[in-house]
């Protein structure tokens, strides 16, 4: 079973293919939010490069948020189209869980942070000590200042929110704060493809009809 992984939730675009032996191929492109133009050309290139084609895709795994609303929808709507028209299963993975999973086996928690604008971050707290990302707290959206008031343990910070608020995090946590190296990409399509494939094998499949992003924020709208 070959699974196509898609991550469009961050300013990084990620596409990947995973099979029985794990990751087959992964591409990450960090050129800002141009996912609508780059997503399917990247998938097409990836398939061609590994000598495969669309008929060999047996399922799609996609990041479901949190992240840029529009960007998450580009990935999810594309995945819905592929799954409905291809008659193949869909699996959804939290953007933050996928980001944390890149640091498997770490003995202290991983804190994926995405810049949510408006001086807030999408943030999660994940235990990865067993090799799999396990959410210690639910993903949330909060000001980094408030989050750091309540979290003082040693942790590894990753994501563009961790970069944006690095000074604040260092100021609050000092040597207890570690940061993911710059070669760890924002997009996590490889993780998504592998985790999504595992989910499918466990039967954790989402109906494309009902699949909806994890926004964590209500739309900005004011009743008259």
């Amino acid at each position: 079973m070959t699974v196509l992984g898609i991550d469009t939730a961050t300013p990084g675009l990620g596409v990947a293919l995973a099979g029985p032996d794990g990751l087959i191929a992964e591409t990450t492109i960090h050129i800002g939010l141009q996912h609508s133009q780059t997503l399917l050309p990247a998938v097409e290139w990836l398939l061609e490069t590994v000598g495969s084609n669309t008929r060999e895709i047996d399922g799609v795994a996609v990041t479901i948020g949190p992240g840029s609303f529009t960007a998450v929808r580009i990935g999810l709507a594309t995945a819905k189209g592929i799954c409905v028209a291809g008659g193949i299963p869909l699996a959804c993975v939290s953007t933050l869980a996928a980001s944390a999973a890149r640091h498997a086996w770490l003995s202290f928690p991983v804190v994926p942070m995405l810049d949510a604008k408006r001086r807030e971050v999408y943030v999660g707290l994940y235990d990865v000590s067993t090799g799999e990302p396990v959410a210690v707290e639910p993903d949330t959206v909060v000001s980094p200042h408030d989050w750091l008031e309540n979290h003082t343990r040693e942790a590894l910070f990753c994501g563009d929110g961790a970069l944006a608020y690095r000074d604040l995090i260092t100021e609050k946590l000092g040597a207890k704060a570690h940061f993911a190296p710059p070669w760890v990409p924002l997009a996590s399509a490889g993780v998504v493809a592998v985790l999504g494939r595992q989910k499918m094998l466990r039967g954790e499949i989402v109906e494309p009809d009902a699949a909806t992003p994890v926004y964590l924020r209500r739309p900005q709208a004011v009743l008259p």
Partner: peptide, 10 residues
Amino acid sequence: SFAKGVAFIR
């Protein structure tokens, strides 16, 4: 995006 997904796989 949805239409592109359908067009792509079919």
